[in-house]
Amino acid sequence: MDNVTPLGGDVYEIDTRMAGYSGVTAGYLILGDRPCLVETGTSTSAPVVRDALTSLGVGPEDLATVVVTHIHLDHAGGVGDIAGYYPSAEIVVHEKGARHLADPSRLMASARMVWGDKLDSLFGSLAPTDAARIRALGDTGSVDLGGGRELASHYSPGHAKHHVGLLDSATGDLYVGDAAGVYLPETGDLRPATPPPDFDLQTALDSVALFGALGPQRLLFSHYGPVADVATTLERSADELRVWVDLTRQAHSEGMDLDHAVAMVREKTRERYSAMASENEETAERFELLSGAPSNVSGIMHWLDRTKARNP
């Protein structure tokens, strides 16, 4: 299939075709003794992911595990549908996200407030998963891939309080979710993902530092794809966080409202990203969809307000 890319080590990247786009959200199949899907993509992507797994020889009873790095709908919106397609699969998520997979009503209501009418076309609706099939991870944990191979889970809550990174013991691949930002392979751009309500700068930097300390051989971004230059990429990830926070802090201290702060940060960061050049209009559109300036600035503003409230 044209949306499946072998990455070596029995790992396959699956373009979930989120909202009909290519290169927006990736799921990954680890095709070992106990096949494991990392990230489901959205609910509307679930049939695309199922067809990809079928093309790789994974039938309804073959998938052992589904793991999500966190429960945002572009990563985990398809969990309920995928659980239905693969009735033997265990669903693995951090303990702070588990109840939302069993009962998605609050998550969907908050997503509707953020996205409005765009919610249905971008993400669809997260279907509930039987709580008995969900395994909740603590701050560390592991997923058995068979044959002595495992995914080690490491709590990394800078992006969201229910976020984990996943390290493959056989390949050294680290599935970074959104905690290292959003990467565009076409341009090599890397931009932070700092949405409300959970963003915290020090926690985010600590998560990036943890990823480096794990010594991965390769980073597998959910947005989007594999990156082999681990140290440079994680350093860039931390730099981008600091740049966006510094600019938003400046706007915040000048009393700007969100719209004006977003406009200022957009202008001052534009030259950092090749994707934002006028000739890359389609790529820029994807960047804004995944790591939109309004979402990023809003998340940082929310954090600054919390920090100010704690330290008046």
Rank of each mutant, 00 (worst) to 15 (best):
V176N: 11
E288K: 07
M301C: 09
L290G: 05
Y273I: 03
T248K: 10
R242C: 07
S278E: 13
G255H: 06
A209S: 13
A263R: 11
V176R: 08
E235H: 11
L289F: 07
S291L: 05
D206A: 10
H302G: 09
D206M: 07
R272P: 03
G212Q: 11
D173L: 14
D173Y: 14
S237Y: 05
S291W: 04
Q250K: 04
A238G: 14
A284E: 04
E240V: 00
P197V: 05
G292W: 00
L201H: 11
S222F: 02
G215F: 10
L290S: 09
R272K: 04
G212H: 13
M276T: 07
D178S: 02
S169D: 11
T248V: 11
V262N: 09
V262E: 04
A179F: 10
T187D: 13
V230Q: 05
G292D: 09
L290K: 14
L247E: 01
M276G: 03
P185C: 09
V243S: 03
S237I: 03
R306I: 06
L184N: 12
T283C: 02
S253Y: 10
H159Y: 15
D173Q: 05
L304W: 09
P195I: 00
H252G: 03
K161Y: 08
D246L: 08
R306K: 05
T187I: 15
H252S: 11
V297T: 07
T269C: 10
V208A: 13
L219H: 06
S298A: 15
V243W: 09
E285G: 08
E254R: 15
D168Q: 05
S274C: 10
L290P: 03
E240H: 02
T171G: 11
A180V: 01
D257V: 06
G165M: 15
D198K: 01
N280I: 02
H223C: 14
H163D: 12
M301P: 02
S169F: 04
G292R: 01
S207A: 04
E285M: 03
L258N: 01
E254Y: 13
V208Y: 02
A179W: 08
L241I: 04
N296A: 01
F221R: 06
M264S: 02
L219T: 00
E282A: 02
L201W: 10
L184T: 05
R191F: 00
T269K: 06
M276H: 01
V245H: 15
L174C: 08
L290N: 00
A293R: 03
A180W: 00
Q250Y: 07
D257F: 11
S253D: 15
W303V: 14
T194G: 00
P195F: 03
G255A: 07
G188C: 15
A275K: 07
R286N: 15
D246M: 09
V262R: 13
D259T: 12
L289A: 08
F211V: 00
L289Y: 03
S253R: 14
G165K: 12
